[in-house]
Amino acid sequence: MTMDRLMFGLTLLGAAVTLIFVGLMQAGAPESLPANVNGYDRPIFAVYFARSIEDLAFITGPGAAAIREWIQGIQALDTWFPLAYGGMAIAFFAGLGLRGRKLAFLGVLLAAGAIGADWAENEVANRILADLDAGRDPSAELDAMWRHTWMKWGLIGAYSGVLSYLLATDSRRPLAIFPGLAAIAFLVTYVTGAHPDAFRVTNYLLTAFMLTFPVAAIFYLRAPDRN
């Protein structure tokens, strides 16, 4: 097996592991968890995009201990989750790079950077949760939370744009649609200050964009190397 085909195979493995993590991170929610938190479908996003202590009211105080504990479990899984979705992206871009698409190596760098940014985001989120457990005010951490979460989303948005361009210029325009829309949606969400409605659309497009990696990998595995 050639190295490019190995990379596309690893893309499929990364996609499978990513889906397993997604399932694990959504399981076991406490009954006291609101269906909607500050307009966001998932409470972890309400933490990432919190701008004031009032935005964290849903996980503040002894009565929210079960929700905090559940989110801390998600954070523990999120130590490894970036390696799954980021590794999937890195493998795919590396496969394209090995087929002569040199721009794909920029995608490798952006995806690797997003892994590091996700870990930095997690570190701040964990400090916020620890402060709340101890009854301290985590407001001083919120600016760092905003910076790190947007560093992560910005890098993911950047490599979604790279992926869209690579696929569109490789006669695979239908596959380029969702990554391209995701790149635009990330920008719109940032401009709107992470408005919940904007982020909800972005999150849907993010899912479709991430699924583009394994779908495109299958196409490239079935097609001969044209370079």
Rank of each mutant, 00 (worst) to 15 (best):
G154R: 09
V124E: 01
E141D: 11
G97W: 10
F93K: 00
A130C: 02
E69G: 03
A140D: 10
A144E: 09
R173W: 14
A66L: 11
A120K: 05
K152M: 12
W119N: 02
A91R: 00
W153M: 13
V162C: 12
A125F: 01
M88W: 00
R172A: 09
I67C: 09
Q72N: 14
S164T: 08
I156R: 03
N122P: 04
A117G: 04
E69N: 07
A76Y: 10
A94T: 15
D137C: 11
E123A: 12
A104R: 06
D118N: 14
V108R: 00
L155Y: 11
Q75G: 13
R127W: 06
G113I: 09
F81Q: 10
L109P: 03
A112K: 00
P82K: 02
T149L: 05
L167Q: 06
Y159R: 01
E123H: 10
I90N: 00
V108M: 05
V124H: 05
Y159K: 01
D78R: 08
I115D: 02
M88S: 00
D78S: 12
L77I: 11
I74Y: 05
K152N: 12
M88Q: 08
G116I: 05
G100Y: 13
A91I: 01
L163N: 02
A140Y: 04
A117D: 03
L103W: 07
A168E: 03
E141R: 09
A114I: 08
F105M: 08
G86V: 04
T169E: 06
R172M: 14
N122Y: 09
G116K: 05
L166A: 12
S171A: 14
A144Y: 03
A117P: 00
Y165G: 02
W150Q: 13
A76I: 15
F93L: 01
N126Y: 04
R173H: 12
L175W: 13
I90A: 03
P82D: 03
R172C: 08
V108Y: 05
G116C: 05
Y165M: 08
I128V: 15
A168Y: 08
P82M: 07
A130D: 10
P138V: 12
T79H: 02
I156C: 08
M145I: 04
W150R: 13
